[in-house]
């Protein structure tokens, strides 16, 4: 950690602060942080917390873009603070804000409860087509069958896609890109038989139909999951299901 007092070069961070006990609404706090070439925005925030203001709150864990904890708005774009390096940002102050479209709990920490409920709502586990016993052996899959869903399994739940989605901003009940990527991860799995069950959870305005294919969710995804693809594929599935529901064998 660089020494604040001896730093030759500094960078200014404008951090949106919100302390629920004392602030009626968020406001910016400005910090001069010692700059080094290899410094990430997360390290800059850690320097602030360690040496300038210990009350600053933010989430982080792995420091290597795996855990998805440190998502925040950096100069207005949703990014992971751990793999955003100060040297790659334009000169001048760096603005750091909590993720857009989420209620702010404190400083850079947002509420994740609704997102977790959405993840839970889409049956995020394999529902076997025909359950097998251990003696009957494993469920086999070809590389091509795996390629059909594999990228959707790379999601780290960082919620950057939700912060980028204006339709989620307009309608917080919208299931949103991340949960839909996870849905497609299971619906696209050749071993899975829960497609209809999941499809039934995503019809309507709060399901896939809030999406207008803005597509920025896929652009900001740090893992190239392409949630926009997951949603738009399922618009087709939802539309087919609307017309075919009367002729389905298991129609209710």
């Amino acid at each position: 950690m660089p020494d604040v007092a001896l730093a030759a070069k500094t960078v200014q961070l404008k951090v949106l602060r919100y302390r629920p006990g004392q602030d009626a609404e968020p406001s910016y706090g400005t910090f001069e942080v010692p700059y080094t070439d290899d410094m990430s925005v997360l390290q800059a925030l850690q320097t602030i917390k360690d040496e300038l203001d210990s009350s600053l709150s933010f989430r982080w864990s792995c420091r290597m873009a795996v855990c998805g904890s440190c998502g925040m708005m950096i100069n207005g774009t949703p990014k992971l603070a751990c793999n955003t390096f100060l040297r790659n940002l334009p000169k001048g102050p760096v603005t750091v804000e909590p993720l857009n479209n989420f209620p702010i709990e404190r400083d850079l920490v947002v509420s994740v409860g609704d997102f977790v409920k959405k993840i839970e709502s889409i049956y995020p586990y394999i529902i076997p087509k025909t359950p097998k016993t251990v003696e009957e052996g494993p469920y086999l899959q070809t590389p091509a069958q795996m390629a059909a869903y594999e990228s959707f399994s790379d999601c780290i739940n960082c919620m950057l896609c939700y912060a980028a989605c204006p339709q989620f901003g307009e309608n917080p009940a919208f299931i949103g890109p991340g949960a839909m990527a996870l849905l497609q991860r299971y619906n696209g799995d050749s071993r899975d038989g829960g497609q209809q069950k999941r499809l039934d959870t995503i019809h309507g305005e709060d399901g896939v139909w809030s999406c207008t294919a803005v597509g920025v969710c896929s652009e900001v995804c740090p893992k190239q999951v392409d949630p926009a693809n997951a949603i738009n594929q399922n618009k087709t599935n939802s539309a087919f299901d609307f017309f075919l529901r009367f002729v389905r064998k298991d129609a209710r």
Binding site: P20, P26, N101, I104, P166, V214
Partner: peptide
């Protein structure tokens, strides 16, 4: 609990924000 979540309003002009949002609006 001290929790008092603050919801920031969405920018009403998001569809004309420079970059991908404006590109989306022009496409539509």
């Amino acid at each position: 609990s001290e929790s008092r979540p603050y919801r920031r309003p969405i920018d009403p002009k998001w569809w004309w924000a420079p970059g991908p949002y404006r590109a989306y609006t022009l496409r539509e």
